[in-house]
Design a binder for these strands. Structure first.
Length: 279
DNA sequence: CGGCATCCCTGGGAGC
DNA sequence: TGCTCCCAGGGATGCC
């Protein structure tokens, strides 16, 4: 489900309710999601204070006191909800943290992780190992960061014989792009998802880099894309779904040239594009 | 190393 | 209304 814009939406919602706040109670309803949860996770969290909340690609990094990081990946169906009063847990609510301004203060927020398909995961580890964490160490640069550019795209795509759409989904080349925004960015760049990655050079690389940044920024402004599971932590839907140019629009007229949008399957994932505008 | 298929899991929608 | 089938925003893993 959640790609960079949705995860950033979650990060922004979590930051004020976690930062400087203490975990006064923790519920952990099962001992695994995609992978086993850290042992005694609830006991390890109670009494701890969060210091700040970061994002890396599709991961949320919740920094704790004593240089620890609570890592969250929402998989395809994970979502975070934040409540001001004690919620009754619903189906697939796996974790709940009760947050307060001090270890003994009254509860102020309840943070609930729901994940029906359980493709998400949670880890707790020392920040001193962040650069070595097996899930983070090989990740490519942030597309909204300084290290990202057309030159970077051209460099990491060099020699790649597979389609550019697949390369965009590869988190080791660029972090945070998923199936929706790959199709959207390629449309705005005028690049076919079928084009061989290695041929993305020069002006085409410039157009694609620009389209990636613009698309992701616009989606963040809209609170992400709500299709099936995703809602913002306050329960609001993400409105970018209204601005999707091609994703999910097969058969509909291209907004630029009215040619019907086409859907194809690449490596088992659907791609949407305008066969006339995108080359 | 690159590229592809397979697998993990539940729920919603389409089609009958 | 009810059943079956297919599909879904992710990524690790193993095979060639």
């Amino acid at each position: 489900m959640p790609e960079l814009p949705e995860v950033e939406t979650v990060r922004r919602a979590l930051a004020p309710v976690l930062t400087q706040h203490y975990v006064t109670a923790a519920f952990v309803g099962r001992n695994d999601l995609r992978w086993p949860l850290p042992k005694n996770l609830a006991e390890q969290l109670v009494g701890r204070q969060f210091t700040n909340v970061d994002r890396r690609g599709k991961y949320v990094l919740m920094h704790l006191d004593q240089q620890d990081i609570l890592l969250l990946h929402l998989g395809m169906s994970g979502s975070i909800r934040i409540y001001d009063t004690p919620p009754s847990l619903r189906k697939h609510d796996h974790i709940m943290l009760t947050m307060a301004a001090s270890p003994t203060a009254a509860a102020r927020h309840y943070i609930v992780l729901n994940d029906p398909r359980r493709f998400g995961w949670v880890d707790l580890f020392s920040a001193t190992h962040q650069d070595h964490h097996k899930l983070l160490r090989h990740m490519g640069p942030e597309p909204l960061g300084n290290a990202f550019s057309a030159t970077h795209l051209q460099t990491v795509f060099a020699g790649r014989q597979g389609p550019v759409k697949n390369a965009l989904l590869n988190q080791q080349l660029i972090a945070g792009i998923g199936n929706i925004y790959a199709s959207e960015a390629l449309f705005h760049a005028g690049v076919s998802p079928r084009r061989k990655a290695a041929t993305i050079v020069g002006q085409r690389a410039e157009r694609l880099a620009t389209a990636i940044v613009k698309t992701l920024r616009a989606a963040i402004e809209d609170g992400g894309t709500s299709l099936r599971d995703h809602v913002q932590p306050g329960g609001e839907i993400g409105y970018f779904v209204q601005r999707l140019a091609v994703y999910g629009r097969d058969g509909q007229a291209c907004q630029a040239c009215t040619t019907p949008i086409k859907m194809i399957v690449q490596s088992g994932r659907s791609s949407f594009y305008c066969p006339r505008c995108q080359r």
